[in-house]
Structure formats: C-alpha cells, structure tokens
Design a protein around this nucleic acid. Structure first.
Lengths: 129, 129
DNA sequence: GTTATTATAGACCCATTAAGTCTCTAATTA
DNA sequence: TAATTAGAGACTTAATGGGTCTATAATAAC
C-alpha cells in the first residue's frame, strides 16, 4: 500500500506555493522545473488541486497558480484527498451476514492517520526564512 | 491507496483459525470454502503467514494450518505486514539537499495508524461463542 | 485585434502490479 | 503404497500508475 508519486509532487508543489507566492501566480512551467518533473504531468495534479478548491488558476500571460484559501487552512489531508480521492483504504470483499468487524478495525486505524494528517498544515513547513 | 484483497482474505482466514481451531489443523480447502475464494490462491497468503511465523503448516493427510503463537500476541499489524510487506506508504522521490520534511509528516501519520493496528489483536474479534 | 502565454481536457502508451489459475513436487499419514 | 495435504513457481489477464502528446480555450501584452 503506497501513496502515488502524484501525491508526492502535489505536496511539494503546494509547499512551494505556500512558501514563495503570496499573490503572484506561479506558472506550471516554473513549478515543474523546481520539482524536476514534466509540466504536462504536473498539470494534472494541479488541476485536481483546483477542483478541490485549494488553489486558483490564472490563465493567460503571466498566469499560473496561486493559493485560494488562507494558508493555515490547508492540511496534508486536504492535499492527499484531492489527489488520491477519499475512498477508504480497506473494503471487505466478503459477503457476511453482518457488518464486517475486521473492516471496522482497519477503518478505525485509518481514522487515526487521517486525524493526524488533518492536524498538520502544509504551512507548518513553509520556509522559515 | 488501498490494501490488497489478499490482506482482506488473510485477516479473515486468521480470524477463522483463532475462532475455531485450537489444536486441529484446518485445511486450505476448508478455509477457502468458508471465505469463498479458490484454494490455490488462498495458499499463497497462508504461505506468507507461515513465513512470518504467525501460523504453522502441517503437511500430509489431515494436515492444514494452525496457529503458531498464542492468540493474544497476533495483532492486525502482524497480519498486514506479513502480506503487504513493511515498506513505508510514502517515499519522497525528489532529491532535496536535506531530509524531506513532507516525508517526515506522512510517516508520522503512518506511525499513528500502525500503533493502533498493533494494539488491536485478531483475537479481539473471535467468536463470542 | 493579433500574438504570445498560459491553463484545460482528453486521447494515448508503456510498465508494473494485483488477482487469479494451473501444474508439478514434496511431505506425511492412513 | 495410495490418498491427502502443503509448497513453489510459471503463466495469464485486467487494472492501475506514470507519463507523453496534441488540440482547445482563455487571457494579457502589444
């Protein structure tokens, strides 16, 4: 069980946006260069972050992406959910009679992790300048 | 990010072994029937559980699988690790200068989940008879 | 208004993994 | 010795991750 690399890139991209760009939009081209990944590929993740309402896109010359919400509101979980989706990590494939107790336990565990990821904000790591 | 179905089957198989078989080994055939999965496929997971030291195999007629350790010692995490491996759910693919702080956060989150899974024992769910 | 610059969308490709089957071998007991 | 069991591994198929490419739309600069 692994998070996709896309999540990795998205987290790093968001960290850049939080750290460096208060107002001015940053182009995909520039972001991609910093992360060492292709612009077209990074676009996909940024589009997801837009749809999740975490960032804004500004088309046209001198456009790019900038934060939408206030920095303090953006948690690791927000970003991860934007890329990975919100489906549970475990779904019992057996058809028991009752609720699956095993699934309950694993989902409780997942909730522990999500709780922590919700508490940690991407701005916590912003460049201490 | 999802756990494989193999993990699902392994957890259910272990629950059966804990619930029903104190001494007598249970054959793959029987276990597979109860779970509604093919015996040869289930074999693969059981073999992993053997290698992880959670269960014992008994070849030959009237053979099968039985628990190895005492029930109370077998946690959800033990079973999940036996099937999924112990690699972290997140590994930063960028080559920064320093340690990746993003990775630190996600791995801390993972530790939260693992801690919980370690605390929950499969015997907790054993048939209340 | 035209042009350059940017994001958006989606088709497409390749490699890897999950999920599962099949067959052969080895060990043990009846 | 024969029946029953696990163990190992080759093999197949479908899904997913990771990534490229191209065409379109929107905007700003000139």
């Amino acid at each position: 069980m692994k998070y996709s690399q896309a999540t990795d890139y998205a987290l790093h991209a968001m960290l850049h946006l939080v750290s460096e760009a208060p107002d001015k939009p940053v182009s995909v081209h520039l972001l991609a260069e910093k992360l060492g990944v292709s612009p077209t590929y990074l676009s996909k993740m940024l589009t997801k972050l837009v749809k999740a309402g975490l960032i804004q896109s500004v088309p046209g010359a001198n456009g790019g992406y900038r934060l939408r919400r206030s920095q303090e509101d953006i948690s690791f979980l927000d970003i991860i959910h934007a890329i990975e989706g919100t489906a549970s990590v475990f779904e019992c494939s057996l058809n028991h009679s009752s609720e699956c107790q095993i699934q309950q336990v694993v989902m409780d565990a997942e909730r522990q992790m999500e709780e922590y990821l919700r508490s940690r904000k991407i701005s916590d790591l912003a460049r201490p300048s």
